[in-house]
Amino acid sequence: QIFVKTLTGKTITLEVEPSDTIENVKAKIQDKEGIPPDQQRLIFAGKQLEDGRTLSDYNIQKESTLHLVL
């Protein structure tokens, strides 16, 4: 699982696999929060994550925290 922290300070927990794409993660966030993926920007280690890449591409491991910017 990974954590996604929103600007409001809320933390969302997501069940993911390293092979999941960023697009996939955004879809999971939409399921939980109702935020359309095209409004979501995910930041990890100061980098904006691209939809077509996977979590493992960015070396995002379990218990990692991503930041969600709208």
Rank of each mutant, 00 (worst) to 15 (best):
K47P: 01
A27E: 10
F44Y: 13
N24R: 14
Q61L: 11
I43K: 06
P18T: 09
T54S: 08
L49W: 01
G34V: 02
I29C: 02
L70E: 09
G9K: 04
L49I: 04
D57E: 12
L66G: 02
I29D: 00
T13M: 10
Q61C: 08
L70C: 14
E23V: 08
N24M: 15
E63L: 12
S56V: 08
G52N: 11
D38S: 13
K47L: 13
Q40V: 10
G52K: 11
L42D: 00
Q1V: 15
Q61I: 12
T6E: 04
I60G: 01
Q1F: 15
E63G: 15
E15F: 13
I29G: 00
P36Y: 05
A45V: 07
T65A: 04
T21P: 04
E23M: 14
S64W: 05
R41Q: 12
T11V: 15
L66H: 02
V25S: 00
K47Y: 09
D51T: 06
K28V: 04
G9W: 04
D38A: 12
E33K: 05
P18I: 10
L68I: 05
L49N: 00
F44L: 04
K10S: 07
T8F: 13
K62G: 14
D57Q: 08
G46E: 05
V16T: 05
T13L: 10
L7F: 13
T6N: 06
Q48Y: 13
N24W: 11
N59E: 07
K28D: 02
T21K: 08
I43Y: 15
L66A: 02
H67L: 13
T65N: 04
S64M: 11
E50P: 03
S19T: 12
L70P: 09
Q1G: 05
V69C: 14
R41P: 01
P18W: 15
L68Y: 02
T11H: 06
Q61S: 11
E15P: 06
I22H: 01
N59C: 10
Q39Y: 09
V4P: 00
Q40G: 03
K28N: 04
R41M: 14
L14K: 00
D31F: 12
T8Q: 11
I60P: 01
F44Q: 03
D31Y: 11
A45F: 09
R41W: 09
E63R: 07
L7C: 15
F44N: 02
I43N: 06
E23R: 14
L42V: 03
E23A: 15
L66I: 12
S64D: 15
R53Y: 14
D38F: 11
Q30A: 13
V16W: 12
S56T: 10
I35G: 02
A27P: 00
K26I: 03
I2D: 00
N59G: 15
L70S: 10
I29E: 00
T13W: 07
Y58P: 00
G46Q: 05
L42M: 03
R53Q: 09
G34A: 05
P18V: 10
Q1E: 08
I35E: 02
P36A: 10
T8W: 15
N59L: 07
Y58L: 06
I43L: 13
H67N: 08
V25E: 00
T13V: 14
N59A: 08
K62V: 12
L55R: 00
Q1N: 10
D31R: 14
Y58C: 04
L14Q: 00
A27K: 14
K5R: 13
K5Q: 11
Q30F: 14
T54A: 06
L70F: 11
N24I: 15
F3V: 05
P18M: 13
V25A: 02
P36H: 11
V69M: 12
E15T: 12
I12S: 02
R53S: 07
G52W: 13
V69D: 07
E33T: 14
I60Q: 01
L14S: 01
I2H: 01
V16N: 02
T65Y: 08
T6F: 15
N24V: 14
D20F: 06
K62T: 14
T65K: 05
N24K: 12
L42N: 00
H67V: 13
F44W: 09
T11D: 04
L14A: 02
T11C: 15
D51V: 06
Q40K: 02
D31K: 12
F3L: 06
K32Q: 11
K26V: 02
L68M: 08
